[in-house]
Simulated scan of single mutants.
Amino acid sequence: MKRLCLWRHAKSDWGDPAKDDFDRPLNARGAKAAEFMAGYITNSTYRPDTVLCSTAARARETCAPLAARLGNRVPIIYRDELYHAMPDAMLDEIRRAPDTAQTLLLVAHNPGLVLLAMALAEDPDEETALRIAHGVPTGGFIVFEFDVERWSDIADGKGRSVFFGRPRDLMTDEKT
């Protein structure tokens, strides 16, 4: 069995209209959410063996607190191809992931990420299907499981959606 985690970059800063989209950093809320989600992911059963991350500034900054927690035990692979990638390009990267990784985390962007989640979902529960259909918010985290031995065998419509979380909901849950 393989587990695929999809993590949309955290909230980015739109304060400098002259800044190129690729170079936009996280805003303060996004940095806080990335830090929280990094802790959540590393302390969960969804801790990755390998991470694939877009090279855009906001994706790298989202991934940075996770990389710090994971240390050099988990490879973080930065891929230009994941910047504003559509599902087919994301699937190509996933299918090339090392089969030694049982849990793979992909850090990328919408709209490709939500389209990928919709394509992968075999039979999501109604709440998860509605959340995916309405988009993956910044910092959103979705987990799929696949009954395959190799990443190259991942196919559309064959993943079981087992988790969907938003930073603000998870932060609230942790406070209660």
Results as ranks from 00 to 15, higher is better:
residue 80 D to Q: 15
residue 132 I to N: 06
residue 38 A to D: 12
residue 105 L to M: 11
residue 5 C to A: 15
residue 58 R to W: 01
residue 98 P to E: 13
residue 108 A to C: 12
residue 77 I to G: 05
residue 155 A to L: 11
residue 105 L to V: 07
residue 64 A to H: 11
residue 5 C to L: 14
residue 68 A to S: 14
residue 84 H to D: 10
residue 143 V to D: 01
residue 86 M to N: 09
residue 83 Y to E: 07
residue 148 V to P: 00
residue 10 A to D: 01
residue 116 L to C: 05
residue 163 F to H: 15
residue 39 G to I: 07
residue 166 R to L: 15
residue 160 R to D: 11
residue 120 L to Y: 03
residue 159 G to S: 05
residue 105 L to R: 09
residue 172 T to A: 15
residue 101 A to Q: 10
residue 27 N to F: 06
residue 12 S to V: 06
residue 175 K to L: 12
residue 73 R to A: 15
residue 157 G to R: 09
residue 75 P to I: 10
residue 120 L to V: 03
residue 46 Y to H: 12
residue 86 M to H: 10
residue 39 G to R: 01
residue 39 G to F: 05
residue 154 I to F: 06
residue 144 F to H: 04
residue 60 R to P: 00
residue 123 D to M: 09
residue 100 T to F: 15
residue 62 T to D: 01
residue 68 A to Q: 15
residue 14 W to Y: 13
residue 47 R to D: 07
residue 105 L to T: 06
residue 49 D to G: 12
residue 174 E to P: 13
residue 79 R to A: 13
residue 92 D to I: 08
residue 169 D to R: 14
residue 163 F to M: 13
residue 27 N to T: 04
residue 95 R to G: 10
residue 61 E to Q: 10
residue 128 T to F: 13
residue 85 A to N: 07
residue 163 F to C: 13
residue 119 A to P: 00
residue 13 D to L: 03
residue 87 P to Y: 12
residue 131 R to A: 08
residue 166 R to F: 08
residue 120 L to W: 01
residue 11 K to G: 02
residue 31 A to D: 02
residue 139 G to Y: 04
residue 159 G to P: 03
residue 22 F to C: 03
residue 170 L to W: 10
residue 24 R to N: 01
residue 6 L to S: 04
residue 143 V to C: 10
residue 167 P to F: 08
residue 64 A to M: 10
residue 161 S to K: 05
residue 46 Y to L: 11
residue 140 G to F: 02
residue 146 F to R: 02
residue 60 R to D: 00
residue 42 T to L: 11
residue 73 R to M: 15
residue 172 T to W: 14
residue 142 I to G: 02
residue 38 A to N: 04
residue 39 G to M: 09
residue 9 H to G: 01
residue 154 I to C: 07
residue 71 G to S: 09
residue 53 C to V: 11
residue 112 G to W: 02
residue 21 D to S: 12
residue 41 I to K: 00
residue 162 V to H: 02
residue 152 S to Q: 10
residue 32 K to W: 08
residue 139 G to T: 03
residue 31 A to H: 00
residue 22 F to V: 06
residue 99 D to K: 07
residue 138 T to E: 06
residue 126 E to N: 08
residue 40 Y to T: 05
residue 165 G to D: 13
residue 46 Y to T: 05
residue 109 H to C: 08
residue 104 L to V: 02
residue 62 T to F: 00
